[in-house]
């Protein structure tokens, strides 16, 4: 286990300076996510233009992996259609959880920096919380999302 696989420069940077941090007001869509294991809490607000994510913000508190993952996600999904989001979410999920994944991290751009997370099984939930939360927002689910 090499720590630098987990805390890559991109991750450290996005943790210290999260992008798109805050809340959209008003927002078309909103969902809260919670990881009871470590107390991570985040909320995602989204404005849509048709079926496209026009704008997105997140806020909350959590470990470096959850904050950086959320920050990277907001950059990656802005402008994406719901179908494109679903496909990206599936690929990120595979990258985070499957050791034999054939996905080239480079093809995911900055999100590829999350590929080290799968070597640290206890931390996968930290990285995936924001994605589950955004999915819930896009599906108009109003209940808080929990990783447990």
């Amino acid at each position: 286990m090499d720590l630098k696989d987990l805390y890559r420069d991109v991750i450290v940077d996005h943790n210290k300076n999260p992008r798109n941090f805050g809340r959209l007001e008003p927002a078309d869509l909103h969902a809260d996510g919670h990881n009871p294991l470590c107390g991570d809490q985040l909320s995602v607000t989204v404005n849509m233009a048709g079926d496209r994510i026009a704008d997105i913000r997140f806020d909350g508190s959590g470990c470096a992996i959850s904050v950086a993952s959320a920050s990277l996600m907001t950059e990656a999904v802005r402008g994406k259609t719901l179908t494109e989001f679903a496909s990206l979410h599936a690929r990120v999920h595979e990258l985070l959880t499957q050791h034999d994944s054939s996905i080239d991290p480079v093809s995911l751009g900055k999100l590829g920096a999350l590929s080290g997370v799968r070597e640290f099984p206890a931390r996968v939930k930290c990285a995936s919380l924001c994605w589950h939360t955004l999915q819930a927002a896009l599906q108009h689910e109003t209940n808080a999302i929990s990783t447990e």
Binding site: L3, G39, C63, A64
Partner: peptide, 22 residues
């Protein structure tokens, strides 16, 4: 500046086992 969960992971890579969480 460091969330307890990150501390737990980093300390583990140094062989130090502590608990983090609530």
């Amino acid at each position: 500046n460091i969330h307890p969960h990150d501390l737990g992971t980093i300390l583990d890579t140094e062989g130090v086992a502590i608990r983090t969480g609530h």
